[in-house]
Write a protein that binds this DNA or RNA. Structure first.
Ligand SMILES: [Mn+2]
Ligand SMILES: [Mn+2]
Ligand SMILES: [Zn+2]
Ligand SMILES: [Zn+2]
Lengths: 121, 121
DNA sequence: TCACAAATGAAAATGGTTTTCATTTCCATG
DNA sequence: CATGGAAATGAAAACCATTTTCATTTGTGA
């Protein structure tokens, strides 16, 4: 495994909301930084496995990344501008555990995202 | 747009849980059915837009499909065997609406899936 | 039968992601 | 400082799901 290139994380931070590997790469190029697409992918993967960034999927399947706090949480994302709010999932955690145990499932995880139009959009 | 080829839906049903387009295609071939991969993709897309099947994404980004009832619902999926239980999301619906309105978001939707190991696995 | 629309699928194109591999950069050690 | 192996880098190729193209076949109503 390789370590994350710090400029990739810095660029992702600066990007604001979620950004794909390709977008991070284009952004760095536009800013005159010299880096290879491969390194961007590798860095993002490393950041994900270190739980420093979250990854999820656009409807078209492209992976998008975002700098995140360490604790488990969910997202409220604007379909218009991409603005993202990190939210607590207290109710969800309980719901997932309850449903799972009702059906005898073990080793349970879950995903949950909310999307809509923010006040500005 | 094209209409769905009935043999595709039939195969997806028979497949049990979620299956990707490629898997449905291979399954049909193995059973000696003559069909093109293109038609499988087109049929699944059509079934999705008619809300006859649900689509979601594997971790690797591949789209997977499943025959589903019409009403809005969520899934409890076994990571081991792929067995799927359709579940009500009453608590989730409320949660999503509340969080969204707290932040002034309109036109709100959400996704939520639970995964774990079923009793058999 | 005829004309036209819809369906089909082989082949090529697309595009994100991963792999390969040769080269460069680090870094610990003597 | 020299130097040798490890880690990082990136260009190019490979991968692979999905979409597009387009020529052909099939279905259907007049
Ligand atoms: Mn987050
Ligand atoms: Mn379902
Ligand atoms: Zn917005
Ligand atoms: Zn199972």
């Amino acid at each position: 495994m390789s370590r994350s290139n710090p400029r990739v994380l810095s660029t992702l931070e600066r990007a604001g909301g979620f950004a794909s590997a390709q977008e991070v790469y284009r952004l760095m190029q536009r800013e005159g930084e010299s880096i290879g697409l491969t390194t961007v992918y590798r860095s993002l993967q490393s950041l994900v496995s270190d739980k420093i960034v979250d990854v999820l999927r656009r409807d078209d399947g492209e992976a998008i990344y975002r700098m995140c706090g360490g604790a488990h949480h969910h997202h409220l994302v604007c379909k218009g501008c991409g603005d993202t709010v990190e939210i607590e999932g207290g109710a969800i955690e309980k719901w997932a555990k309850t449903i799972a145990s009702e059906h005898g499932f073990k080793d349970v995880g879950h995903t949950a995202e909310i999307f809509g139009l923010c006040p500005k959009c």
